[in-house]
Amino acid sequence: MGGGILPVALLIVWWAVTAAQLLPSYRLPSPAAVVQAAVDLQTNPLYPGALFRDIAISVQRVILGFLIGSLIGLVLGSLVGLSRTAEILLGPLLGAIRAVPSLAWMPLLLLYLGIFEPPKIVLITIGAIFPVFTTLSTALRHVDPHLVEVGRAFGLRRFELLTTVQLPAVLPSLVAGLRLALAQSWLFLVAAELISSSIGLGYLLSDSQNNSRVDRLFLAIILLAILGKSTDALIGLLERRLLKRWG
């Protein structure tokens, strides 16, 4: 509950500043104007449902890219964290790929994969892989060897050992990695949609910039904040489910 105090205060200040007309509305739109912008976008007779469509496509891209990316990160992180051989083979290459700023892939992806969904999802995937990979592989190297030995002594091997002892032991790091990966996913979603898209919240941002629609820019930013926070809450939910399942 306490976490709601500041956002509400901010909203009141925002409203007060605009109501007192301290700034011109083309600089700072009022909260009501932003809500109106949302309604207009959604009910525009030329493109009915445009706002929800933008939201839906962005969420879909983020979730797809995040799921694929964190799954790859999970597999690579487990391999490199658990096997010396995999670390020697894969470590340097993955480190080099990680060193490439992910946005640098975008032109190549557009060239190879066209302009529709694949390049965006692949970019988000790349962005999601490394936080999971890095946190997981590091954490797995530090699991208490005594506990791993218990697992082995009671007949657990490889995959079972991983899911019974090693992953639960690194759950906090894993969750931190997933959270970072999700934040990265949203970051690369917006980047991809700013660069090349005709729908989505990133497109709404660039289109509104071109038309100087500050109210829609505010709308897009607020929506990104709400969606980012909600998906992050899902990870908290996942953490609790895993704790219950493993406990």
Partner: peptide, 28 residues
């Protein structure tokens, strides 16, 4: 290697900290 005909109780309890006592015993 790790012979399943025997079972060990280690010098340290070595319980999995995230599991309940019941689920720890069930591992055996």
């Amino acid at each position: 290697e790790v012979d399943q005909r025997s079972a060990v109780a280690f010098q340290e309890p070595r319980l999995l900290p995230w599991r309940t006592v019941e689920r720890n015993v069930r591992l055996g």
